[in-house]
Design a protein around this nucleic acid. Structure first.
Lengths: 114, 114
DNA sequence: CGCGGCACTTCACTTGGTAAAGTGGTTCCG
DNA sequence: CGGAACCACTTTACCAAGTGAAGTGCCGCG
């Protein structure tokens, strides 16, 4: 590719700048969630992309996949500590958006998680 | 696209997640710079992409273009206040990279290929 | 037994970034 | 004075990543 693989900013950017990544992290911060739940919250994401993203994030150790073997078998996803370490960026982005972009400051999404 | 245009995180993500954006912002934080200088610092960027990115960032009010009409006419780019408001994110990303990715903490740029 | 949900995958298409080359202006050098 | 080189890009052709729509295999439900 071209950007320095030694550079922490570049490396982080490659992870978090993939489309939807930050949004799934934010969604998962609200609590563990299943594929179809994420699909519903992230309106517009294609299942293919969600699947890819989840897999990448799992590989990176940012989310944890848990196969509950109930019947029918459910799959749940949750943030790891590493994943939670991304939250400050999301917070910064929210601040930036609220201050500099004309966003509804409170249209964060549904749910101010208790 | 699909992501909520009201959501400050989504809006900000759309801007900063375009490839190279954060890197040009970081570069510009070092001081105003010219096209070819940026081209050299951001090893691997194509002039087309740099041109596009600079234009977008200018439109967003994140960088300022200054045509000095010396001869030959030089063009300089610099961060605006809005642009500087992105720096905390970059800082967060550096922290994340240093803590969670195996990056040389100080190899910010040129690899010390001794 | 057919319908619907879940967790995906496959396919065809569009969009965004890339590499390589080109453009039109300038100054530098012999 | 001619040619090489620099600057700030643009143009072209190409490729990879994301999209929308549909499909798959598995299950449980009425």
């Amino acid at each position: 590719m071209a950007v320095d693989p030694e550079c922490p900013v570049c490396r982080t950017a490659e992870i978090v700048c993939a489309k939807w990544t930050l949004l799934v992290v934010r969604e998962l911060d609200e609590g563990r969630s299943r594929f179809c739940e994420l699909e519903r919250s992230l309106t517009g994401i294609s299942p293919r992309t969600l699947s890819l993203r989840l897999r990448e994030l799992e590989q990176e150790g940012i989310v944890e996949r848990q196969q509950l073997d109930e019947l029918p078998p459910r799959t749940e996803y949750a943030l790891t500590d590493k994943g939670r370490a991304l939250l400050p960026m999301i917070e910064d982005m929210r601040c930036f958006g609220e201050r500099w972009l004309d966003c509804e400051a409170d249209a964060v999404f549904s749910s101010p998680s208790a």
